[in-house]
Simulated assay, not measured.
Amino acid sequence: MTATSRLTVGDDAPDFTLSDADGNEVSLSDYRGRKVIVYFYPAASTPGCTKQACDFRDSLAELNGAGLAVIGISPDKPEKLAKFRDAEALTFPLLSDPDRTTLEAWAAYGDKMMYGKTVRGVIRSTFVVDENGKIAVAQYNVRATGHVAKLRKDLSV
């Protein structure tokens, strides 16, 4: 298996259709004509992923006000995403990619360093997709804590 090249500004955002926490299909193409933040995280209900999701939740009004929707994607099954959403009162779609096809298409799955060792897993990544389906921002290996504030600053939101 070869590693997918990392996405860069100007690339076409790979389309996807994934199930949300309620089992409904959501596609990136549903957001055509709008800007959307697509972020990939390793696992629902873990400390870092919870902090990151809550930061997006707490910033959602400002992000939406600036014309940005938010989608979170992880390899978790819809049932786990529903528990996570309900426990943390998350109000944006959480999508399930258990076979990691979308994660791999966006180069958000692969080798990463964890506790000094190279392991394969989800690479915490955030993208902004513009109204035409192009990558406007591509950030890999982001930190769970403080990332949303930095993103808002970078986007002047």
Rank of each mutant, 00 (worst) to 15 (best):
I123S: 03
L95I: 00
Q139F: 06
N24V: 09
V137T: 13
T50S: 01
R32W: 10
P47G: 08
A69N: 11
A136C: 08
A66H: 12
F127T: 13
A44D: 01
D12M: 14
K134L: 03
V70W: 02
R57Y: 04
A66Q: 15
K77C: 05
R34H: 09
A13F: 06
T50A: 01
D30G: 03
G48C: 01
G121W: 00
G10R: 04
K112M: 14
T2W: 13
V148W: 04
D86L: 09
Y31I: 07
L151Q: 03
L95N: 02
V128Q: 09
A149S: 15
G72Y: 10
T46A: 00
R57Q: 07
L90C: 10
I135V: 12
I73H: 10
G67H: 03
V157Y: 13
R100T: 14
G48E: 02
A108K: 06
K80V: 15
M114W: 10
F92N: 01
A107N: 13
K35Q: 12
V128Y: 04
E25L: 04
L63Y: 03
G23S: 09
N132S: 12
K80L: 11
Y31R: 02
T8H: 09
R124F: 05
D12S: 15
C54E: 13
A149V: 05
D12Y: 08
D99M: 05
K134S: 10
V26E: 05
P75N: 06
G121K: 01
P93V: 07
K150C: 07
A66V: 05
F16Y: 09
V129Y: 03
V9E: 00
T2P: 10
L94E: 03
L63S: 11
G121D: 09
K77S: 10
R143E: 08
Q52I: 09
V38T: 09
L63V: 08
L60Q: 12
A44V: 13
E88F: 00
T102N: 00
F92C: 04
V9H: 02
T102F: 04
L81I: 13
S5L: 14
L68T: 11
G67Q: 03
R100C: 14
A3R: 03
V38C: 05
G48T: 06
A89C: 08
E79W: 07
A13V: 07
P98D: 05
F40V: 13
D76P: 01
D55Y: 14
D11V: 14
D15R: 13
D22E: 15
I123L: 00
F84N: 00
L90Y: 09
P75I: 12
S5R: 15
R32P: 00
G110P: 06
